[in-house]
């Protein structure tokens, strides 16, 4: 019987702590998301080769290199994506030699690759 009030108090304390924690967690998660987005990358995260500096500088103005590193496109598809980004995502249109530098680099280093489902056999990597 004597335990009941204590249990009630404990429950209330727990509940208020939970309520107080929620806005803090929301803020901390938003900050963590911003910190991830603001994380500085080194150019060397991309494959070495002619055009890397140009690609790194131009592309990371908007997004980080994960979008490049995960990609495996033919030159034609990379070229198409340049138009898509300027038409749909406010990228300054790429033209002439500079465009070739960018697209050539991407096609050379992030071209189609053969891979099994989910990145290969799990017992070998």
């Amino acid at each position: 019987m004597r335990l009941l009030p204590y249990a009630l108090v404990a429950a209330l304390l727990f509940a208020s702590a939970t309520i107080a924690r929620t806005p803090d967690l929301a803020r901390r998660q938003a900050e963590a998301a911003a910190a991830l987005a603001d994380q500085q990358e080194e150019e060397t995260v991309l494959a070495e080769g002619e055009g890397r500096s140009e690609v790194f500088g131009y592309c990371t103005a908007c997004h980080n290199t994960a979008l490049i590193r995960r990609s495996a496109f033919t030159r034609e598809r990379w070229d198409e994506l340049m138009d898509w980004m300027s038409e749909k995502h406010e990228m300054n249109p790429l033209e002439g030699e500079f465009r070739d530098t960018i697209v050539d680099y991407l096609a050379r280093h992030y071209g189609p690759r053969a891979r099994g489902p989910r990145g290969g056999a799990p017992f070998l990597n």
Partner: peptide, 23 residues
């Protein structure tokens, strides 16, 4: 290069989700 090994999210209140990109 372009390792296929997944990276995992580290964030308070989130499980280690498979990272698709930071920004």
């Amino acid at each position: 290069q372009g390792a296929t090994q997944p990276q995992f999210l580290q964030m308070e209140g989130k499980a280690p989700l498979i990272m698709q990109g930071e920004r």
